Amino acid sequence: MAWNLLYNEYHSGDQVSSVKLQNLRREFEYMRMRENEPLTAYLTRLNELINQMKTFGEVLSNERLDQKVLISLSKVYDPICLVIENTKSLETIELQEVIAILKSQDQMF
């Protein structure tokens, strides 16, 4: 019964998948870090959403993911984001490297 429920959820018709993916895209665009939310909690929420989008066939470039992380953080992270944007090439830097920089700076706070 559980298997059938999961199968129907992720292998429904193309139109249903398209609608689900569109909703996930909207959620991705509007997602922001909440005030007083820990960095790791926000990154976990974002990663879960990205994985759901990939399940439905969405392909996001590394540059797009980097940009999303940098523009959606709370104001506390603005100076760090500015340094990353001015010293790294978002076309070539891996998302994991951006996250590592943010986490290391977060530990200093």
Score class of each variant (00 low, 15 high):
Val83Phe: 10
Leu46Ile: 02
Tyr10Arg: 00
Glu85Met: 07
Ser74Gly: 02
Gln15Asp: 11
Glu27Pro: 06
Phe56Met: 07
Lys68Met: 04
Leu21Arg: 13
Arg45Ala: 04
Val83Asn: 12
Leu65Tyr: 02
Phe56Glu: 02
Ser18Tyr: 05
Leu46Val: 04
Thr44Cys: 06
Ala100Asn: 15
Val59Ile: 13
Tyr77Cys: 02
Glu37Trp: 07
Leu49Glu: 05
Leu65Asn: 02
Arg25Gln: 15
Lys75Glu: 15
Phe28Val: 01
Glu9Cys: 05
Gln67Pro: 02
Lys103Tyr: 00
Leu73Cys: 08
Ile50Lys: 07
Lys103Gln: 10
Glu48Phe: 12
Ile93Gly: 05
Met53Thr: 00
Leu95Asp: 02
Glu97Ile: 14
Asn62Asp: 10
Asn4Asp: 05
Ser17Pro: 00
Arg64Thr: 11
Thr87Trp: 07
Asn62Val: 13
Trp3Ile: 15
Ser104Val: 11
Leu70Gly: 04
Met33Trp: 05
Ser12Asp: 10
Asn86Gln: 10
Val59Ala: 15
Leu70Ala: 01
Leu102Gln: 04
Cys81Trp: 04
Ile93Arg: 03
Thr44Gln: 09
Gln52Ile: 01
Arg45Trp: 10
Lys103Cys: 04
Thr55Ser: 06
Cys81Pro: 01
Lys88Asp: 04
Glu94Gly: 12
Leu73Trp: 06
Glu48Gln: 13
Ile93Glu: 05
Asn47Arg: 14
Val76Asn: 13
Glu91Lys: 14
Tyr42Trp: 09
Arg32Ile: 09
Glu94Pro: 03
Pro38Asp: 08
Glu48Trp: 08
Lys75Arg: 06
Ala100Val: 12
Lys88Met: 09
Asp78His: 13
Lys20Ile: 04
Ala2Ser: 14
Asp14Ile: 00
Ser74Phe: 06
Gln107Ser: 11
Tyr42Val: 00
Met53Trp: 03
Met53Ser: 06
Pro79Phe: 08
Ser18Arg: 10
Ala2Tyr: 02
Glu48Tyr: 13
Leu70Thr: 03
Ala100Ile: 05
Met31Ile: 07
